[in-house]
Each structure stands twice: as structure tokens, then as C-alpha cells.
Amino acid sequence: MASGVKNTGKFLRDVGREMKRVTWPTRKELIKYTGVVLATVFFISIFFAVVDLGLSTLVRTFLD
């Protein structure tokens, strides 16, 4: 059981060391990346909505 606590402590120290090495984005970069993600989600949702509408219309045409 003691080795588990030892391993946990080492893991947390290693995580702390790695977090200091991380290059965090600037505020400007973060806003830019967020805009890219939101635009991508918007366009993909519109694409799938159009495809869904087209397919459902096609299926309704064949079933009626």
C-alpha cells in the first residue's frame, strides 16, 4: 500500500514539472482558436442539417 502512495506522489511531482513546460496560448491566440472552433462547429452543424433534410425528403418521397 505504501508504494501506491509513493507512486502517486511521484506522479503528481512529474505532472507539476510538465505543467511548467507547457506553452500556454496568449489571450489573442485563445480568442482566435475559439473563433475557429465555433465557426467549424457552426458550418458542420449546418452541413449535417442540410444533409438530414435532403435524406429525410428523399426517404419520404420513396415511402409515400
Rank of each mutant, 00 (worst) to 15 (best):
V50N: 01
F47D: 00
T26V: 07
G54P: 00
L63Q: 10
V36T: 07
F42R: 08
L58C: 00
T57Y: 03
R60L: 11
V50D: 00
A2G: 00
G16W: 10
V5M: 08
L53M: 12
T26D: 12
L38G: 00
F43I: 07
V51N: 00
M1G: 07
K10W: 05
L58S: 05
L63T: 05
W24L: 15
K20V: 13
K28C: 00
G4I: 07
I31F: 12
D64Y: 11
S56W: 03
T26Y: 08
T61G: 00
T34D: 08
A2E: 14
D14F: 04
L38C: 02
V59Y: 12
I46N: 01
P25S: 11
K32P: 03
V5C: 02
G54S: 08
G16D: 15
K32V: 02
L58V: 02
G9M: 10
L55F: 11
V36C: 05
L63W: 02
L12A: 09
L63E: 12
L58M: 11
L12E: 07
S45F: 06
G4N: 09
V22N: 06
A2Y: 05
E18G: 05
R27L: 12
G35V: 03
Y33A: 14
T34Q: 11
W24Y: 15
M19N: 06
A49S: 05
R17M: 13
R13C: 09
L12D: 02
T23E: 15
A39S: 13
G9I: 09
V36G: 03
K20S: 11
I46Q: 01
A2T: 06
R13I: 15
